[in-house]
Every structure is written in C-alpha cells, then in structure tokens.
C-alpha cells in the first residue's frame, strides 16, 4: 500500500517558516493577558529565584550587619596569602578577640621549621585516667564551654578500658568514679594522631585542612565550610565541631594564640588538636604534657635521633591504635 504524503501546503503550515517569524505580532498577541497556568509557573520560578538570591546574598547581609568583614569574606586560601596580608589579618583577628572577650591576644602564624617532625608517645602503664590533660587542653586552646567544667570540646578523650585487652567497643569515656585508677581498668587518652596518611585531609572538599611539613594537621578556620566530612573520615574521633559561636569566659582566654590553632573560632567550623602548635613551634611542650601528674606523656622531634621520642620507639613496646586502617599515626602508645 502506498503511503499517503501530505499535501505540500500543509507542511508549510506546520513548520515555522522564516516568513512567519518575521511577521510582526498583532496588537492582540502582544498584550494578550497571561493565562493562569503560565502566571503560576512564572511566580514559582520567581520565588525560587528570589530565595536563591537571598541565600546567595547572605554573606553580604552579614557584611551589612557587621558579622563578617569584607576582607574576611574575600580572604584567599592560607597558602596564597602574602606575609604582609597575613599580618593585616592577624591584627584584625586580635582586635576581634579584644572586642568579644576583652583580652588582647598575641596571634602568631608560626611556620613549620626544617628538620622537625613532631611525634607523641603515651605510656599506657602510667596513665591513671585523671583527665588533667583533657582539662589543660581546654585551658590552652580556647574551646567553647557552657560551664567551667565542660570538656565536651576538649581534643582529648580518656577511654576507660577493662584490663586484659584493647577493646574500644566496650570502652567508656564518661567514667566518673570516686577515685582513679580503678583496680580492673586501665586508661587510654585519645586525641588527634596527626596521621601521615590522614583520611581527614583527603576528605576535605575545599582543602581547608592539610598536613604541614612538621607533620601537624591544621585547619584554616577562615576557609572551612563546616561540612564535617573530615569528622566522618577520622577513625579516632579527634575532630570537634563548633555548633555555636564559642562561649569562653573572658578570664579563661589564653592570649598566646596561633592562626592555625587556638585563636577563638567562628561558628560552624571544625577544630582539631594541633599538638598545641602555638607552643610546640615556639619550642615548648604541649599543654597536656605539661600537666600530666604521672609523666605518662613524651613529646619530641622524631627526626632527631637523640630525642626522647626516638628512645621510646627504639626501646619500648610500642602500640599503634587502629594500625590496620593504615593511617600511620604520629601518636604512639607504649608499655613499660
């Protein structure tokens, strides 16, 4: 059966010929009132567009209200900042701290020195679980706290484990007996392990966290977007998130501050133990080590063959927490 072909003039009528497009609109067509459906479509699109715009303009609104500064909004990545620019930022941050907490701090941007790789060792046979380290961490690092005793934001969690095995699943860091150590328990403080193969830095979508040359993992709080991917990636539960703008009593502010470490953080950023970078890069011991009543903590330069930390690695029975996940920590546990 032969196919019927439509007449030629019908084809002309169906397709948009240039002649038809060029034809000027009639007055009725031009001012034809919108039908209901397309009006609603347009209105919905406008609402979506407007809300998107408002969201996009939030930083500008914050700018307007003085919650952030223009310089802060447009600040470059830490590694692209010139030393001169950095100084301007540091002075600005000092002023902000003075304004909010009434204490004029000294915020420094200490760079890693050559030939230094930090490492930490903790003696599990000595630790008594007194939590002085966790509290010293709070005193040093200007974390948020609701009450003076609140250590939820401390970078150190002291785990209480039953003697006989290292079973983290049955560990407890909320223990609060009358006295420690309990007879059948031992204690394992856990903090950032400054892993050489760090899952957290790999998870960060904006490169707001990275490992410096001396092995310290740092966060630029001005660059962090608060997505908390790093927290999910960390096998040691070492990272903390600022759900609100940190509340710190004025008298509890530590004025010795570092840009990448313990300066007061903004809301919505992740923070982490940096082995007290503001102290250790200036040559001092970390705060947790300074207060340990049993001397269970040893800190030093792993690249120095005569350092205390190397003595431990060479002479003691050393244990690496979750060695099987391949993070290669710079934090070692040992027994003697």
């Amino acid at each position: 059966m032969q196919r019927e072909t439509p007449p030629a003039k019908d084809i002309d009528a169906m397709s948009d010929t240039p002649e038809k497009l060029k034809r000027p609109k009639t007055v009725e067509e031009a001012i034809k009132p919108m039908d209901r459906r397309s009006f609603l479509k347009g209105a919905a699109a406008s609402v979506v567009g407007m809300s998107g715009l408002v969201a996009a303009l939030q930083p500008l609104l914050k700018l307007e209200r003085g919650e952030i500064t223009l310089d802060g909004l447009l600040q470059k990545h830490y590694k692209e900042l010139s030393p001169k620019r950095m100084q301007t930022i540091l002075r600005k941050l000092e002023e902000e701290c003075k304004e909010r907490y009434g204490v004029l701090p000294s915020i420094r941007d200490l760079k890693p020195a050559e030939g230094i790789g930090f490492a930490y060792a903790l003696n599990l046979s000595r630790c008594v679980g007194c939590r002085k380290c966790a509290h010293a961490c709070m005193a040093e690092n200007n974390q948020h706290r609701d009450t003076p005793d609140d250590i939820n934001m401390s970078y150190i969690r002291v785990l209480e484990l039953a003697k006989g095995s290292i079973n983290l699943e049955t560990s407890n860091h909320y223990y609060d007996p009358k006295e420690v150590p309990q007879k059948d328990k031992y204690y394992m403080p856990v903090q950032c392990h400054q892993c050489r193969e760090s899952p957290c830095t790999k998870a960060c979508p904006v490169e707001a966290t990275w490992q410096d040359d001396d092995g310290i993992i740092v966060i630029d709080y001005n660059w962090c977007i608060g997505c908390r991917y790093c927290m999910a990636a960390c096998p040691y539960d070492a990272r903390r998130f600022n759900y609100e703008k940190p509340k710190i009593p004025n008298e509890a502010i530590n004025p010795n501050q570092g840009y990448l470490s313990n300066r007061p953080r903004p809301k919505g950023v992740v923070e982490i133990c940096t082995f007290c970078l503001q102290r250790t890069r200036a040559g001092k011991y970390p705060a947790c080590m300074e207060v340990c009543p049993t001397g269970a903590r040893v800190f030093g330069n792993i690249l120095d063959p005569d350092s205390e930390i190397n003595y431990i690695l060479q002479n003691k029975r050393v244990y690496v927490l979750k060695e099987d996940v391949g993070t290669q920590p710079r934090f070692y546990y040992y027994f003697d």
Binding site: V128, I151, R157, E169
Partner: peptide, 24 residues
C-alpha cells in the same frame, strides 16, 4: 606508688543517646 585521685569532670553523656555511658 601513687595514691588514687579524684578524676576531673567527664564529658556529658548525650541526653538523647540510647544505652548507658558504661559502654556495656
């Protein structure tokens, strides 16, 4: 040998978490 001491205050157990802080 060191005499036992009172531990400093613990972190707070999350209010909405199930189970108990003993970890058992």
């Amino acid at each position: 040998s060191f005499k036992p001491i009172k531990p400093l205050s613990p972190p707070t157990y999350p209010k909405r978490a199930t189970g108990n802080p003993s970890g058992q």
